[in-house]
Nucleic acid binder design. Sequence first.
DNA 1: CCACCCAAAACTGTCAACAATTTACTCCCG
DNA 2: CGGGAGTAAATTGTTGACAGTTTTGGGTGG
Lengths: 229, 229
Amino acid sequence: MNDALKRPIRAQSLVDVVTERLEAAIVNGELAPGSRLSEQGLALSLGVSRGPLREAIRRLEGRKLVQRTTNIGVHVTQLTGNDLSDLLVVREALEGMACGLAASAMTDADLDDLDRLLGEHGDQESVRDGTGYYQQSPDFDFHFRIVSASRNERLIQMLCHDLYDLLRVYRYKSSRFSGRATAAFEEHLRIAAALRARDPAAAEAAMRAHIRNARTHILAQIAADTTPV
Amino acid sequence: MNDALKRPIRAQSLVDVVTERLEAAIVNGELAPGSRLSEQGLALSLGVSRGPLREAIRRLEGRKLVQRTTNIGVHVTQLTGNDLSDLLVVREALEGMACGLAASAMTDADLDDLDRLLGEHGDQESVRDGTGYYQQSPDFDFHFRIVSASRNERLIQMLCHDLYDLLRVYRYKSSRFSGRATAAFEEHLRIAAALRARDPAAAEAAMRAHIRNARTHILAQIAADTTPV
DNA sequence: CCACCCAAAACTGTCAACAATTTACTCCCG
DNA sequence: CGGGAGTAAATTGTTGACAGTTTTGGGTGG
């Protein structure tokens, strides 16, 4: 799909490298939400000057992954329950649309791949008892494939790059979202069936219901988690 | 709604000021899409050093308003017809959702305000013949109010700040999108009616149809514009 | 007259130093 | 012993300078 070759390779600047490193560190929890980023310290530990580091931070700032307060410093974005709620509504809208588009655009090969993926999920026991710590990755795989099949670059970018990153940040901060693996798996099957039927409306509805259920579950879990504290 | 007072005021840094200026210049067309931004020249004309200017550019880069190529320079994002098409699909998904939420959240006062706005629009002759150059602003007003009524901060931000900015950039670059003012106005009325009925599903459907029609119209106009060239 | 190569100018990438503000600590007073 | 003012340390904001790359222009050879 990509031309790959022919386009001149450009040495990526320090800013690019630093941005990737910071993004990875934030997403995988190495930099905890709410934690402060010291420019001096980070510049030293990354072996770069403060200039490129600051520029990288500005870029993440534009993506809402960090927040800068003038003369105070930058903090990794900390999502409140409300933020997470809002974010999942946005995800419902975007991913529902993506799923509807995918229903029209997916090839037979794509559909077969998706079924194979679901087959592997079904074999895992973690789906049945629903601990699902490393169910996280296959779950993202499933959604990632459907979104990619929408063939809408902007939509793919917004979901897979921006939204998923933000959601991952939250996941690592708070406790696992578990206890719904079985229901989620069945919803995945329903989505796959609608895609196989090439029914955009049904596919969108199934995906939206899936995300709406996840949202309800997550919000309930958060409410139960934070009220006792 | 905002606490306004009590929160200490912070002198906004040069980066903030520069970011606003650049954003405004790009949105209002002063910096044309595809044009190159010279760091030296801009720094000189804005009266700041290259450091803050570069940081401001990085922030806009995160928002996809400009694009940087290593060792070459930064260019104002130039949307292709495909980009615009993708973008409008995203807008359909997000603004449809926002409109559905607004149907539940809008107060009677909000609805009255919206009706008053529509009444003013109906009086303008530009709606009837449909030149609609400065119809642009009232149109954004209408959409802006509905989106704001969704009470979803993330959604509001994504639509009113990010998406509308990008769309405005395109509008100024290419020819006016006209000839649909009458139909658009009627669709606005239909949306308002659904909101007044507090019917989320109908409101979402009406908004999505409205944006889908606009998209079709715009894409057709672009195809007619560029093929002869 | 065109194509190619080489040198100079212009520009971007990076860095280290300086200025301004915030934070932390210490000392003094009540 | 508690509170507050003042000072010192640390951190962020900004700047100017240097290094590396790209582009431009001219000159030479075919």
